[in-house]
Design a protein around this nucleic acid. Sequence first.
DNA 1: AGCGTATAATTTGTATACAATCTATATGGA
DNA 2: TCCATATAGATTGTATACAAATTATACGCT
Lengths: 153, 153
Amino acid sequence: MIESFCDMINKSALLHKRIMTRVLQKYELTYAQFQVLKTIQDHPGLSAKEVLIYLDTDKATLSGILHRLEKSVMIHRKIDPNDRRLMHLHLTHKSEAIINAVKEQEETCEKKLTKGLKNREIRIFQDAFQTIINNQNEQLKERIKEWEETFNE
Amino acid sequence: MIESFCDMINKSALLHKRIMTRVLQKYELTYAQFQVLKTIQDHPGLSAKEVLIYLDTDKATLSGILHRLEKSVMIHRKIDPNDRRLMHLHLTHKSEAIINAVKEQEETCEKKLTKGLKNREIRIFQDAFQTIINNQNEQLKERIKEWEETFNE
DNA sequence: AGCGTATAATTTGTATACAATCTATATGGA
DNA sequence: TCCATATAGATTGTATACAAATTATACGCT
């Protein structure tokens, strides 16, 4: 049994990643790769920069992920003819089928999470969680601001 | 705004890690290192194996973390004279002071998370979260069982 | 004592997370 | 046109997360 919110949040994220890793291992995909593929499926032709915004992750990490996904023929990359810095990302036939299958399993997994909870409790949980995330975002912003001020002294 | 539970859980864990990374950077500690130090503080003299159980993490990762913590004089390692496979872990004076300071800041951070929530909502949130974590543990167990059965075919 | 097995840690290899730097391209103003 | 600046990606270096193999030690059994 866990006591603090922070520990619960960490533990839960760890468990979700482990569960999805099990689901994904038969497709030889990692969870991070799956999230990138999902984003590309939702917005075909988007750029790496746009993936970063959707996933709130790091460009160095994404660069490696895209490299590996291309190597395993899960995505195509096409340079934009009007702006050669940009690339447009698309799924392949291979990945399209896999992603649809895994997304279904993830939804099933998500539904099982709330087993034993009443609808009312689920609603309160979700709203409270959103409030907590907003508070976290605010706190992070404060910390970054503090840090920048320290840096400028 | 995020829609699914899984996305909320991932996002929240990511944000917490980022916040704590900001807090810890002035002590030149990572969040993982801080968690290990907290565990050692709570159970002085425990072994690496025991840290693994408390933190539910991996021995390969922990091995590296302990190595770096020893190098930066944050911990002492002492071989057990009765079982030379075992080592006993202790904080140093240096880390003891740091951990106490950071723990306070983490508690402050934790309190700010629930800003805007009523006590009733917090209670329901916490109970629901515990239920969700239990469901996740169950699901992971099932997946591992399935995987082992596939493996034995 | 000798041997097989179990266990604690370390090591190795791959895939992230993230900060910092570099490269190539695009854009706006002199 | 030329140059400073901005932006998209890639690269580098450090620290995880985790699976698999290795090392060293302990324990049980004959």
